[in-house]
Design a protein around this nucleic acid. Sequence first.
RNA 1: CCUCCCGUAGUUCAAUGGAUAGAACAGGAGACUUCUAAGCUCUUGAUGGAAGUUCGAUUCUUCCCGGGAGGACCA
Length: 574
Amino acid sequence: MKELLFPHIIKVVSTFGIDEKMVDIEYSDNTNHGDFSTNVALINAKKLKMNPSQLADKIVSKFKEEMPDLVESVAVAGAGFINFKIKDKFWAEKILDTKWLERSHGGQTSVMVEYTDPNPFKEFHIGHLMSNAIGESISRLIEYSGTKVIRANWQGDVGPHVAKAIWGALKDQKSKIKDQKFPQEENSEISKSAYWGKAYAFGADAYDKDENIRKEINEINKKIYDRSDEKVNELYDKGRKESLEAFEDIYKRLDTKFDNYFFEGKEGRNGEEIANELLKKGILEESDGAIIFKGEKYGLHTRVFITSNGLPTYETKELGLNIEKFKLYPDLSQSIIVTANEQSDYFKVLFKAFSLFEENIANKTKHIAHGLMRFASGKMSSRKGNVISGEVLIDEIKSMVIEKIDSNDSAKREFGEIEKDEIADMIAIGAIKYTILRQAIGGDIVFDSSKSISFEGDSGPYLQYSTVRAGAILAKAKDMVNTEVRPPEKVGQLERLLVRFPDIVERAKNEYSPQHVANYLVALSGEFNSFYAKQIIVDMKDPMSPYYVTLTKVFRKVMEEGLWILGIKVPSKM
RNA sequence: CCUCCCGUAGUUCAAUGGAUAGAACAGGAGACUUCUAAGCUCUUGAUGGAAGUUCGAUUCUUCCCGGGAGGACCA
């Protein structure tokens, strides 16, 4: 609708010598201001040496000379805003013909999105849940606009954290004979990934406290690299496999599927070669026996690429990773990396270094930093073992959902056991994802308890519920398909809001901000629920009923598309 | 000490430099009891402080106060 109005405004405004670029049309939030408004007179008045409302008046009278059929009225308001009201029949047309709801196809290039990035041997915690929800939604936003997305996952399968976990696991085996304290004993039901997470936390704690243990762990670290110890190899292979398998189960539950997995063990070796080349080129330099990048030259800080012991750091591994990404996918138009914002400065330094020898990669790579999920009390740390596991959170929420279903507080919810489990899973995950995606990506989510995940009002389940409800109505209206649809005389906010959907998605994509979609869906659901409350939709005696059913159908479709973008599934009933 | 991010109702969050700062939860009141009440209607309540830029500032600039993150051998 916006694009239909735009050329008419341009045409008029250009006769005043106003450039096309200076024209912006926005949706009016306030219904008293019509459907669209432009501030073109306010912005350009000074340049044309007029006062804004005068200019607006002139634009409006010129516009009225060739009033497009689309427009019902146009008026100047406030300091010089020009408000347009679109004829109701054009909104109704959009509801009856939903070409605007078709997805675009056929981008030539592709975009890689790297996200989630859990480390094998550590626990998959709620921070990973956050990265996953955000990365998946950004991927879907890009896919929705017709561009191919390659989903990538970058995982640390080597390094000190692995050695700590292996040490912990070795201790655990001995502890069955001796009296060693290990969390495993307290809970034999513990999942495999949680087991390794705890083994890691156990090892990390011991590493900090005891110098002898530190030596033992460093020794194990070396053994992992050169695979010289059979016992270590066995545990390493077992742990790596078990961790990765456990992650796959979670991905399946979260409805994400990765196209490519990159591992530090492999990319690290490539990175070392690159780092050595950069040393020769003078981009990296030697200092105190380490190989570093001096970020201070560019207003950043120094980072170590190879330690004085000759070991590659994370920086070097990422050197290898990012080169590999573009080698594997030469047509990549963009490479997006989603991580917590604690890595923001680190990425600035890394990509400054990249800009000095692979400008293409530096220009195409974008770091999206999300906030942390933290407790009111402070930061969580997998080192200390005070993390909330992703699965534990999901299951906790899920049991709250099941409780709500069983409580039978209102509606007749009669689900089979298997069905109930599936529905509860979708609702729990929907609630969590929505909580993450409803707000701006950069901000922290303060997590008091599972109570901060809501089922009411501004929540994932509210969106799911509204969609399911629309589905129930459509099921009831099945017999009405052949009835003639009569366009309405008047349309309301619901129609207007529905037609906005593609513009909302467009903006969300451009700004990498799924929250715009989330906020929109809540407003839309509210509008639909109000409509539902005051209007009987399926009524054989009402000649308008077929139109209401069509409207419901469009609503349902927009909700499905929008929830898909958020990565939230729609249950068949709830 | 330096760099970056953030301060909006009691709480959790919105607001491409625009018009009367929006929601939700909590609090207060209510309707229906015909398509799913995880719903609907009404209602109380907010921009940390001070300057500046602008026709116009929650948004941009500077300073102050408060919170968080990062800052050479962890990731």
